[in-house]
Amino acid sequence: MEALLDFAKGPLFRFSFAVMILGLVRIVVLDIWGAVNAYRRAGDKKLDWNGAIRNTLHWLFPVKHVFARRPVYSLLSIFFHIGLIVVPIFLLAHIQLWKAGIGLSWWSLPPVWADTLTLATIGFALALLIGRMGSAGARYLSRKQDYLWPVMLIIPFITGYFCANVVLGAGTYQLLMLIHILSGELILLLLPFSKIAHCVLMPMSQFVVALAWKFPARVDDEICTTLHKKGAPV
C-alpha cells in the first residue's frame, strides 16, 4: 500500500500535473494559432475587441447578467468555483507537500476555513447537480460529462475531508488517501481535454465568437466558387 501511495504521490503526480499544465498551454496555443489564421483570412479586419473583453468580464463576474434572473444558481456556481480553486491550492497539507518536493510554499488557508469550504463545495456541487437534473431545459442541453464532472470533482473533496478530520485506522486512512490522490490526478489528467478546459479557454471564447461574426454564412462555398473549385471542402 505504501509503495502504491509513493507511486501515486511521485511519478504519477508528476505525469498528471505535467499533462495538465502542458495540455492547457497546448490548447491555448492551438486556439490562438487557429484564430490568428482565421483572422488573417477574414475580409473585415475590424474586430469588436472591447465587446469581447466586456463579455469576458461579464462572464467572469456574472453579477449583472445572470444574478438578477437566477440568483440562487449564480451564487451556488460562484461559491462552487471558489471552493474548487481555493481549497486545493491553499490547503496547508498540499503546500507542505510542495515545500517538501520543490521547496516552494505560499499562504495557506486556516484549517477551519479549509474544512468549512470543503464541506460547502461538496454541498454546492450536489446542489448544482440536482439543479441540472431538475430542470428540463438543462437536461436537454446536458451531455454525459456534465453529470459526471460534478461527481468526479467532489470525490477528492470527500476523501480529503475524511483523511484530515476523522479518526481512522491506518489501513482505511491509506485507502482513502489513495483514492483521494488518484481521483485528483484523474481530474488533472482529463482537465485539458474536457469541458474543464474552460478555465483557460474562457477568455478566448469571446474572441472566437467575435471573430466568427466576420465570416458570413456559407462563406466556404463562396470562397470555393471564387476560386473556381466548387464543391471542394475548405
Binding site: G10, P11, L12, R14, F15, S16, A18, V19, L22, G23, V25, R26, V29, L30, W33, G34, G101
Partner: peptide, 25 residues
Amino acid sequence: RIAGRTVYSLVFIVALAAGLAIVST
C-alpha cells in the same frame, strides 16, 4: 496540416509529461 498539428502536439506533451514522470528525483 491542422490535423497534424493537433496530433503531434498531443503526442509531444504526453511524451514530455511521461519523461518528467520517469526521471528519478
